[in-house]
Design a protein around this nucleic acid. Structure first.
Lengths: 318, 318
DNA sequence: TTGTAAGCGTTATCAC
DNA sequence: GTGATAACGCTTACAA
């Protein structure tokens, strides 16, 4: 009765109670409130890895948005294991959060997908909201980046600078969003008249070390033939960069390099990496908005992703 | 009665109930459980900034530890505002977490310190546990790094390489742990016979840009006189590095540079940065252990911090 | 072993 | 306006 109820109380009592509350250090018992009201003020967020710059930036933006609405955020991590996702959702559901936001990468056709969908649907039936970020494959509210278009534009611009023979590093674990990036990049190259655009696509392990090790395993001749390495995330691009340097190549003199995401880490990397900037803040805002708004039919919205050309991909001499 | 109670039930019923539960997608209502039991399975974590590599690594370690004990983690962020801490603790207390871990930097003598202590003590009186990380100034369980010793050892080693005229970048907002680092570094220099060891200590804004801007504002003569820049965090060291490069200095040829924390970001920075490694995992483990164990009298424990010399501080020619 | 009832802290409802 | 009471979903204590 202290908080937003419609009860009318004499102001004098109100003041006395408020004062006593302060005096005694009273704080409303949120779980009890949630139980009585039937709805909590918590949003559950599922991400892959909190120590990853991309996800921690995403989490930060989501928390910021939640904060403005007076909501708490409970975070759970999958550690990149597809099956963990299902368990986590089950556990989180028990916390009775107002909404569950799945921001971990969406696996292509994981064995447990149907179970995940069932679980989420049951959650929705009990009044919860589900929002998906970066995985437009499931029948729920979805916010996504325009992965295809961002990568395509990047390829167009790079081709304009003269880059043709591009090594593309996709993700070893099949993730929908990463596949889109590969497709977009290849499409952009093809549009620019690059003949064998799709012939240099590979899928190392989806990590910094995966990219690095792939580069280290490349034959000298394959490496020398290249003009550019494009990786589907900045994380992988940086791993590739490390590998290329270990192979004795100078960047960007010998080889250009480009990534995707525009993570903060890039600030400290020399040469400055060309990448595709994604509007994290817009996506976070949209996701939290969806999570707290009741809208009968699920929509998909796409946030912009646009290339940012920097020192790692100078114009090629003609 | 489904979970760890002492009730004895016929196995056949048990199976049937378990089956039905699965069938219907039943999940125990955690808040209700918490209310009935009087204790929840949630740990509340307060940090400064989730997008900061140091804090996100810390959060990741804490979540990992909590996970092994079947606990959930609810994260709240102060955004580096000292007064937010108090509000957050109040709010968090309402969530009735089993423990509150304060990992945000400890401000030296904030105006609201007494209120914060009161609030935390009230929380403890109602059965909650309080654990402090990196701020050994309050009467609660504390886990800390050996900031002084780590910085001192770093200074000793650097002095051994020939570095004498060192610019020290401390924290503009007075933080206990950062002060220790400055003191330790200066002490190490003094022990090594550097005469004016404490004369080049400055306190720019506690951030990447703070450090960068400080460097940009330095006079040419002051800059040229230096042999090394030591910043109390890697984040600041990287900001300084950016500034130094903008000033046209080559690192490490013209100037050495060193930081503190050994954040993951350093992996991608050239030259590799000399820093002080802190055992985040050990601290996280200890913190979660303390948070879940009842120990009548608060203890302070210190985790090791040791220098790691890398390419940014080569031996000086003699 | 099993059923029953009380109680956790809060909100909402329904009379007064 | 205000007081009393049921209800939220679960655990626990006490009988049966």
């Amino acid at each position: 009765m202290l908080n937003g109820s419609s009860r009318k109380v004499a102001e004098s009592y109100r003041q006395r109670v408020l004062h006593a509350a302060r005096e005694l250090g009273y704080t409303p018992n949120l779980p009890a409130q949630a139980m009585a009201r039937g709805t909590s003020r918590t949003i559950a967020l599922v991400i892959s890895l909190i120590s990853d710059p991309y996800f921690s930036a995403m989490a930060a933006e989501i928390m910021k948005q939640a904060e403005t609405l007076g909501l708490h955020v409970s975070i759970a991590v999958t550690e990149r294991q597809a099956d963990r996702e299902l368990d986590l959702v089950r556990e989180l559901r028990g916390q009775q959060p107002r909404a569950i936001i799945l921001a971990g990468s969406g696996y292509v056709d994981p064995p447990s997908e149907q179970q995940l969908v069932d679980e989420l649907q049951r959650y929705e039936e009990t009044g919860g909201r589900v929002v998906l970020i970066s995985r437009s494959d499931l029948p729920f509210e979805t916010v996504d980046f325009d992965n295809h278009e961002g990568a395509r534009q990047l390829a167009l611009q790079l081709a304009g600078l003269g880059y043709q023979r591009c090594l593309v590093l996709g993700s070893g674990t099949p993730l929908l969003s990463m596949q889109r990036r590969v497709e977009g990049f290849v499409a952009g190259l093809e549009e620019s008249g690059v003949a064998d655009a799709g012939s240099r696509v590979h899928h190392p392990d989806f990590s910094w070390s995966g990219a690095r090790e792939f580069i280290l395993g490349l034959g000298d001749d394959q490496l020398r033939d290249l003009q550019l390495v494009f990786a589907v995330t900045d994380d992988m691009a940086l791993g590739a960069l490390a590998g290329l340097r270990e192979r004795g190549l100078r960047i960007p003199e010998d080889l250009g390099i480009a990534g995707f995401d525009d993570i903060t880490t890039l600030r400290d990397v020399v040469p400055n990496l060309t990448t595709v900037h994604v509007a994290l803040d817009a996506v976070a805002e949209e996701a939290v908005h969806r999570a707290t708004t009741t809208d009968p039919n699920p929509t998909r919205r796409t946030a912009p992703a646009y290339p940012v050309l920097r020192a790692s991909t100078p114009p090629l001499p003609t």
